[in-house]
Amino acid sequence: MATKTISVDIKTVKNDVYLVEIFKGLLLTLKHFLKIGAKSAYLAPTERRAGKLSTNNRATIQYPEEKWVPYPQYRGLHRLNKDEQDRTKCVACEMCATACPADCIFIEAERSPWADEFPNDPKREKHPKIYEIDVLRCIFCGFCEEACPCEAIELTEIYDFAAYSRENAVYDKEKLERVYDLTKDGKFYQEGRKLDFEF
């Protein structure tokens, strides 16, 4: 490709006195620097989204006493959704396990206890006997959520689920459904809830 030549007119007054712009920039920095200590400066994201004004005027938060509330699209711990009658929505199709790049979902299917209630819907005839996610291997890409045809698996806002053993980091169906109970209203951190299983 041929080089393109651009002619720049440097003989304008504005360009001659470009130092003015530099000072403008420095002034802005100074303004913000001086603002620290004044009200309404920086808010922790938690408070900003809760619509609160900063009271302590710090950009940091006092974790773990104070919990950060992630953004709605945050990809944290998984949950298995249930329908209105508390039956798992998952149909054990293994789309999530197939899509998962970390190969950390293990599913074993069986005939569901509620199969007879849906004679015309083979989808509800199947459910997972075993559904396990090894969150140590999970890379929280969210592919499982995207692959799921039943909106059964979802990633939640929960980020603090470090475990003391590898076994406890494998989430089975009961745990994942419990996560659903805790997060279905989307207020896990706002309500100060905690995961109530063994770690």
């Binding site: 149909v91 054990a92 199709c93 789309m95 083979p122 989808k123 005839e125 045809p149 039943c150």
Partner: peptide, 8 residues
């Protein structure tokens, strides 16, 4: 056709 491939 039911196209219920996920459980088929």
């Amino acid at each position: 056709h039911p196209t219920d491939c996920p459980v088929c």
